[in-house]
Write a protein that binds this DNA or RNA. Structure first.
Lengths: 199, 199
DNA sequence: ATAATAACTGCACTCATTGCCAAAATGGAA
DNA sequence: TTCCATTTTGGCAATGAGTGCAGTTATTAT
């Protein structure tokens, strides 16, 4: 990752490939854009793309790994005196908060990921890493192993909430992601209290 | 789908392909088994497999479409006087109830799906149909459109519960899927009531 | 026997992905 | 300047999934 002082310099970068790829995806669609197209548009070899991204499906995710570290820190900084579900809920909201002006590229990224079947499928593998971050936080608070039922469930439920909010957001870009997430959490709590009241 | 009275008879069946494929998957692994291998083992053309399954990834799912109809009926028959979340929870439990003796092939199927990265990814597309069944049920009860936030969230949360239970079940085959699902639901309700008590 | 029908399957092609390795580019050393 | 170590690039070949096309094959109906 660090810039080598010796050796042949890199001809391109993750960001450059990503940018060109997104332009082509927007023009012709994800499936109709071949890696050859992208390589040719960049003036590099097709083989070189694989030195920057593990697969075509990984291109839209770009920097997700780094983003995950921020999420971990964010959760760790959450006050321990609020209920677990509230802490995770707040963490998810904070994680997905960003200025409305900076959204356009982010909207495009998420739209591509959520609307392209091949990417919907591939993304599960990324989501698993995200869930793991939550499972580890929950496990710490519950003092159990991260692989046990409760931490895993918390990760899955948080993902359920986030995915639902994102999908609505794409259909209704005026609504803020934040309020959709909060609305989802309210619904979840309301359903649970119905059950509690009935039993 | 109906047996044609005229024309060349089918040389194989979904079940036959599925069975042979599973045997080879078990022997060499999913990725290492090519469609040519499966076709050859069956003595049919590779091309013919595509007349029965849309893709290699679809083979492990076999009859899921038909299963989904049963799930729809099951939810529709759920009493309307119990809370929505309880009804969905009970529906999911019932849907996944099956005799412990009949499990072995089902375990193998789920293990393959849940442990093979390519299948984990592909399965999202199947899960989406499953979630849709729940979303439609929830929408009917809530008297809103199935595409709105609440029904969609209910589908996602139910899937979160089911996936968590299945994953635990694979690691701990002695535990019944039913009790894992119920344990998950109890955890979810407990977390929600913590939040309710704190606010 | 012939026709109609429905399924099977070989052929050729596209495209993602991977292993292998020679070529290219650069800073530093001799 | 020339040579060397280092690092990246990218061509080549091979594998395997997926797809359109067209000819072949097995049955039933006339």
């Amino acid at each position: 990752m660090k810039r080598a002082s010796v050796g042949r310099p890199e001809v391109t970068s993750h960001a450059q490939i990503e940018q060109t790829a997104f332009r082509l995806f927007a023009e012709r669609g994800f499936a109709a854009t071949t890696l050859d197209d992208i390589a040719q548009a960049l003036g590099i070899g097709r083989r070189t793309i694989f030195r920057y991204f593990a697969s075509k499906n990984d291109i839209p995710w770009g920097q997700f790994d780094r983003t995950l570290d921020g999420f971990r820190d964010l959760l760790a900084a959450m006050p321990a005196d609020i209920p677990l579900l509230a802490a995770v809920g707040r963490g998810v909201v904070e994680f997905n908060r960003f200025p409305a002006d900076a959204s356009p590229p982010h909207i495009e990224r998420m739209r591509l990921i959520l609307e392209t079947p091949a990417l919907q499928a591939h993304s599960v593998l990324r989501y698993a890493e995200w869930r793991q971050v939550i499972a580890e936080y929950a496990a710490r608070r519950l003092e159990v192993e991260p692989t046990t039922l409760e931490p895993q469930l918390m990760g899955q439920v948080a993902l359920a909430l986030a995915l639902t909010a994102y999908e609505r957001w794409l259909h209704e870009p005026d609504a803020s992601l934040t309020s959709l997430l909060e609305e989802g959490m309210r619904s979840l709590l309301a359903w649970a209290s119905e059950v509690a009241a009935a039993s």
